[in-house]
């Protein structure tokens, strides 16, 4: 079992003719992902990475029965690509693109609320079910199949924590990179709900960071509605207020919200241990299994 993606997921790659889109389509296929098509306006009829390219996502869905998409479309056109994907009733849309204007994402988010589609991202590394499929740019070789779910706002920090787990023989059901932007599709709570409902996921590692209140809301959900044990890492304890730490969403506002301290306290109050190092997170997870 897994969440969101498995070996049967039929993937269309939006932006497959671009440098990044092509490279990662090949990487996804090499990993074993069932990539069935690409979609790029004006490029219909071509073949890239061994799969047919269609002018529209609708046609890719009609011809190849795609049920998920990965979006590598540049920021200026990404919102349009996401609307197109949402309009085809795919089960899952994974937006890798970094730098989509926040107001564009607000309208996408509004449209998303009227659909049954899961949107992961934007500005995220993607989703992987080890040994089955990866939708995104995650390096497949550090993952291993197992019983721990992982959800994270940061790409490379995900890799770090996964590495700590895999190195001691702890595999993963699915890892979800939800992205570091202020407005994202799948929140921590959405991801935690998926893992809670998955019988194979025995524990969840959660990597948060400063900014926003998503981690605090997740803590409330864990305390009241979750049986699966969770261990967490929160990045940005040493971040000064008012400075954006790389991610558009990673900023402690002047009024004191979004601090690491508030997130760690909320998680501790919910019974979630927060590791001082990624290695400590792995210790906690190992203790759960």
């Amino acid at each position: 079992m897994s969440v969101l993606v498995d070996a049967d997921t039929r993937v269309v790659v939006q932006g497959i003719t671009g440098g990044e889109g092509k490279f990662h389509a090949e990487q996804m296929i090499e990993y074993g992902t069932n990539v069935v098509a690409g979609a790029v306006p004006g490029k219909g009829g071509q073949e890239v990475a061994g799969v047919p390219v269609y002018d529209t996502v609708h046609e890719a869905v009609r011809q190849e029965d795609a049920d998920a998409s990965v979006v590598f479309v540049p920021p200026a056109f990404a919102a349009d690509a996401l609307f197109e994907a949402l309009d085809t009733s795919l089960d899952l849309v994974v937006a890798i693109t970094e730098g989509i204007p926040t107001q564009d994402m607000a309208t996408v988010n509004r449209r998303l609320s009227e659909t049954d589609t899961h949107l992961v991202g934007p500005n995220c590394p993607g989703v992987i079910t080890p040994g089955e499929a990866k939708l995104g740019i995650l390096p497949g070789n550090i993952f291993a199949s197992g019983n721990v779910g992982l959800v994270s706002r940061s790409g490379t920090l995900t890799y770090q924590v996964v590495d700590n787990l895999t190195n001691r023989g702890i595999g993963q059901t699915t890892a979800i990179g939800i992205g570091g932007d202020p407005i994202i599709g799948t929140s921590f709570i959405d991801a935690l709900e998926l893992f809670e409902a998955d019988p194979e996921t025995e524990a969840v590692a959660m990597c948060g960071e400063i900014g926003g209140e998503d981690e605090e809301e997740a803590a409330e959900y864990i305390a009241t509605q979750m049986d699966t044990p969770v261990a967490a890492f929160i990045a940005g304890r040493t971040a000064p207020p008012g400075k954006r730490m790389g991610h558009a969403g990673a900023i402690v506002s002047g009024s004191g919200t979004g601090t690491a301290e508030s997130k760690i306290n909320a998680l501790n109050d919910a019974g979630v241990p927060v590791g001082d190092t990624p290695e400590e997170v792995a210790d906690h997870i190992e203790g759960y299994l």
Binding site: S152, R153, S154, G155, T156, L157, T158, Y159, Q160, G180, C207, E209, I210, F233, A235, G236, R237, T238, A239, P240, K243, R244, M245, G246, H247, A250, A260, D276, T277, P278
Partner: peptide
């Protein structure tokens, strides 16, 4: 993406979350 702080351990990394985590570990 660079933010100057007051300490003496210089930190370079890739990805905002991992760099933040590296700062936190230096402090830890």
């Amino acid at each position: 993406d660079y933010v100057r702080l007051s300490g003496n351990v210089g930190i370079i990394g890739n990805g905002a979350g991992l760099v933040m985590a590296t700062l936190d570990l230096v402090d830890h």
